[in-house]
């Protein structure tokens, strides 16, 4: 521990407490189709928002997360299940395996010197992966952003609208996308994606 004083809220559910994902009540299951699209929730993830000057954050992030710092707009750096995304000139979104969330938060707080904010927003958003040959077709029906690989290559991160909601999209591969969605819009986006993917089929 450094001289910083701070309170960390442990958001992992205890044995007694029951934590549900925002998608607990949605319709799941496969829809038969020729080239089914995978729509899969990744709920065991810790989300940390970092706000502040890039010069204050860069070295600490590199040290704690063992990742390069994405200082260019719309870029990201990832390793295994850890990822940091550029969101805005003074905002980054870090995701780590759920069980590591508070230890990573503590390590970042210890490593960063200066006026920054680190907020655990794991309870406020969730992640959905969209996979398959027609994943980009589903996005083309849902967002005004040009998701062609020339404009949206692997590793690029954009914040835009999906249907009527805000979403952070990262391309993981040619046929794989990660959507970070808000808790309160999660069931709406889930239903929208299943509807948009129905013509191709869904691996739910």
């Amino acid at each position: 521990m450094s001289n910083n004083s701070y309170a960390i809220m442990e958001q992992q559910p205890s044995i007694k407490g029951l934590a549900n994902t925002p998608l607990v009540n949605v319709v799941r299951g496969a829809i038969p189709g020729p080239n089914a699209v995978g729509i899969e929730e990744h709920d065991d993830v810790g989300h940390l928002v970092l706000r502040g000057d890039a010069t204050l954050l860069a070295s600490a992030v590199t040290e704690v997360l063992d990742l390069a710092f994405p200082d260019q707009p719309l870029s990201s750096c990832s390793r295994d299940k850890t990822c940091i995304r550029w969101i805005s000139p003074d905002e980054w979104l870090v995701t780590v395996p759920g069980t590591e969330t508070s230890s990573v938060e503590s390590s970042l707080r210890d490593a960063i010197v200066g006026h920054v904010a680190i907020v655990n927003v794991s309870g406020g958003q969730t992640i959905v992966h969209l996979t398959g040959k027609h994943a980009s077709d589903v996005l083309m029906k849902s967002t005004s952003y040009d998701v062609h690989e020339l404009n949206f290559p692997t590793g690029k991160v954009i914040t835009t609208t999906l249907a009527q909601a805000q979403v952070i999209i990262r391309r993981l591969d040619t046929d794989q996308f990660e959507l970070v969605i808000r808790r309160s819009f999660a069931d709406y986006i889930w239903s929208w994606l299943r509807d948009a993917a129905t013509e191709f089929g869904v691996n739910g």
């Binding site: 707009p73 005004s144 954009i158 835009t160 609208t161």
Partner: peptide, 12 residues
């Protein structure tokens, strides 16, 4: 000028 990209009006 921050994202350094041209986007649709609905984002603004």
């Amino acid at each position: 000028p921050y994202c350094q990209e041209t986007r649709e009006e609905e984002e603004f």
